[in-house]
Design a protein around this nucleic acid. Structure first.
Lengths: 225, 225
DNA sequence: ACAAAAGTGTTTTCTATACACCCATGG
DNA sequence: CCATGGGTGTATAGAAAACACTTTTGT
């Protein structure tokens, strides 16, 4: 009757984006179980820390990354999901601009790497399921919350935004209608800076105005694409 | 350094609906902490049971109810949310047809009662926050998932559905447009049965066709109101 | 001058909204 | 025959979708 207590862990699915590719941050496990296999970063929650603190700590410890946007995803609690015993994991979902950070392996990670989201390796535990849940959430939420900007550079040409949405939604977008819609939302500031991509006409840079977005949101104006 | 382990509990916000009122199922606590105060039903997760099983077990034990629709809501894990020590709670969100069950108090509940959702008593722990999260979720989800039918009788007159949505959305609905839209979704079967509400023309009964709904959903046709 | 990407308006179609009268029943 | 709730269609406005040419730069 004196069973081992249930343990609580956190895991984080971290998405990045670069040049038309959605990527996911994974670590190679240094210890058993699943030693040498890839997994999403995470670890046990300490007694006095909040779940968010635990995720941020584990991410920093294992990968050196500081997250840009973080939200709770889902709690996975099947009795047999971890061979070490009963471990319930609160999964989080994060977005970063990959080029903002250098990633490095530490603590129980042997290696850290960005993987293209459609060329993923075999994953440990039920991490495949967690990852699928996260991808669904990202795709579902991108159309009614301005998450996309968390994946782009602070200042970005309009074509980057367009390509990001094309990638995330998995279908083509009409450039003119898309631009009209986004501009109409009134949450982008057009800067007086241009950037050239080597060939073609240089593009104007834009910046997401978070303050204005929250203002409009409070007034009941909804973001929708 | 030998700290007490983190404990894991589940809690369930259960909504019912009757005659224009959204109600919430609460229990009066029999034991400390918060003895005599109202709380949402819940309890600790046992070592070998899944989270869903735990919720269903606790609901049955404490209130005698069997839930109709259940989904995970959010996991609440602030270090100080429970005075007994560190307790992380996975909150669920349930819908029932209240007239289907008799509720009764048992185990650590002194009393069980349906409360009108805008006449709620003071709640224990952080249950107010959990409840608010659940209400937001219900209101948000009702427009793009066919949750409403879980709250109505299996066979219902159209006016019941209309009143439910008026209540949930907190605004008037154009009867003709609403009917057109719902009928257009093609997920209701019109029965050859009528029901009279005492006065006025008897209403035809309808029934939600879950099979057809999932069929259409698979084909990418979305439910939206 | 040409290749390559950026920028821009108008027309058409569909969807959402507004709106009022007749119908079936019980008392 | 009247009170009560049930059932229905059409016209208008607004939003989404379709669609192609000009502009700016680098080579």
């Amino acid at each position: 009757m004196s069973k081992q207590a249930i343990k609580l862990s956190v895991d984080a699915v971290v998405f990045g984006y670069e040049e038309g590719n959605i990527s996911v941050l994974l670590i190679k496990r240094k210890f058993e179980p699943f030693k040498g296999q890839w997994a999403i970063p995470g670890g046990f929650v300490e007694h006095d820390e909040s779940l968010e603190t635990a995720v941020e700590r584990e991410l920093l410890e294992e990968t050196g990354i500081k997250i840009n946007y973080l939200e709770q995803l889902y709690t996975f609690g099947k009795p047999k999901r971890d061979p070490r015993g009963r471990v319930v994991s609160v999964a989080y979902f994060g977005l970063v601009r990959p080029n903002t950070f250098d990633i490095f392996a530490a603590t129980d990670a042997e290696q850290v790497q960005w993987f293209n989201s459609n060329e993923l390796p075999k994953l440990s535990f039920d991490h495949k399921e967690i990852l699928n849940t996260a991808i669904e959430r990202l795709q579902g939420k991108i159309t009614y919350e301005p998450l996309g900007f968390e994946l782009l550079d602070k200042k970005f040409p309009f074509s980057d935004l367009e390509k990001l949405y094309t990638t995330l939604l998995g279908r083509d977008i009409d450039r003119r209608n898309f631009r009209k819609k986004i501009i109409g939302l009134n949450v982008l500031d057009e800067l007086n800076e241009k950037v050239s991509k080597g060939s073609g006409r240089p593009a104007n840079l834009f910046q997401f105005n978070k303050k204005r977005y929250f203002q409009l949101k409070k007034e009941g104006i909804i973001f929708e694409i």
